[in-house]
Design a binder for these strands. Sequence first.
DNA 1: ATATGTGCAAACTGTTTGCAGCCGC
DNA 2: GCGGCTGCAAACAGTTTGCACATAT
Lengths: 136, 136
Amino acid sequence: MKSIAEKLKEKNIRPSYQRMKIFEYLNNERNHPTADQIFRYLVKEMPTLSKATVYNTMDIFRKAGLVRVVNIEDNEARYDSEVSVHGHFKCELCGKIYDFPIDTDALSSNVLKGFKITEKDVYFRGICPECRNRNK
Amino acid sequence: MKSIAEKLKEKNIRPSYQRMKIFEYLNNERNHPTADQIFRYLVKEMPTLSKATVYNTMDIFRKAGLVRVVNIEDNEARYDSEVSVHGHFKCELCGKIYDFPIDTDALSSNVLKGFKITEKDVYFRGICPECRNRNK
DNA sequence: ATATGTGCAAACTGTTTGCAGCCGC
DNA sequence: GCGGCTGCAAACAGTTTGCACATAT
C-alpha cells in the first residue's frame, strides 16, 4: 500500500502537508465535494488553510489526472476522485450525486466519426429511489 | 407557419418586443450562444436592452421548455433552441459546439433502475474533423 | 387601473490572480 | 539560497436581485 506522499511524487507533485490532506480527504469522503466543502472540512484541523490553496491544489490534481471535475451543478464545481469514465446522476430532491457505469461505445455513435474525443461527461438528473419511496 | 408572437402565447408568455427578438435570434443563429452573445447582438438594434432582461427571458424560455441550457463550458451557460435529447461536442481548438444524436436507451442502463430520470446531458470534448485536417 | 415587463445598478458567488512571506530541499 | 508553496486580499466574471419606471390590456 503506497503512502499518499508517494502517490503524489509519482505524478511529480510535491507532497506538501496541505496537498496530502486534501488528497486524503478526497479519497476518504467520496461525496463529490465542492471546493468549499473541502475547505470547510480541512480548515478545522488546519486553521491557516486558504481557499486559494484548495483551488490551486485541485487544479494541479486535475492536470495530473488524479481527480475529475463534475459540472453537474451550474453554479459550482465538484471533484471526483474516481477518474474512470462513468456517468453522474443528481437527485433533485436530496441533492445526492450517484456514480453509474456507462457503455461508452454505445454512446459515441458513428455520427462522430472523424472527431477525436478526449473527454466524456454524462449528467443525468431526476429523483433517486430513496426519495421516491419516501414520498409514497 | 406560426408567428413568433403566437408561439410565445401558446406557452403563456406575453410576447413583448424584447422576448420576440430574443426568440427570433435563438432560432436563426443556432450557435449555442451565451447570454452575452445574445445581448451584444441585439443591443445593436435595441440600444436600451438590458442584460438582466436577457437573463430573465432565458429563464422564462427554459421553464417553458423553449430552450435547453448547455453547460459544456464551466464558466458560462449557453442556450440551445433545439430542445430534443441530444449530445453536445465541443472542439477544444476552434471552440465550435456540435450537436449529435444519442441512443438514449443505450445510456440509461439497468443500473439506474428505480431512478426517475428527468434530464440527460451528454457533453463530449475533443477535436473536430476540420481542426484535425487543418493541423495535418 | 392593474398586471406585468424592462432597465439600471448594486449585490452576490465561485473562482482566479498578484504578491509577500515562508518552508523545504 | 533558491524554487516552489501558501495565504491573504483584491480582482474578476457571470448571474441574480431590488426597485422605480414604463408598458400593455
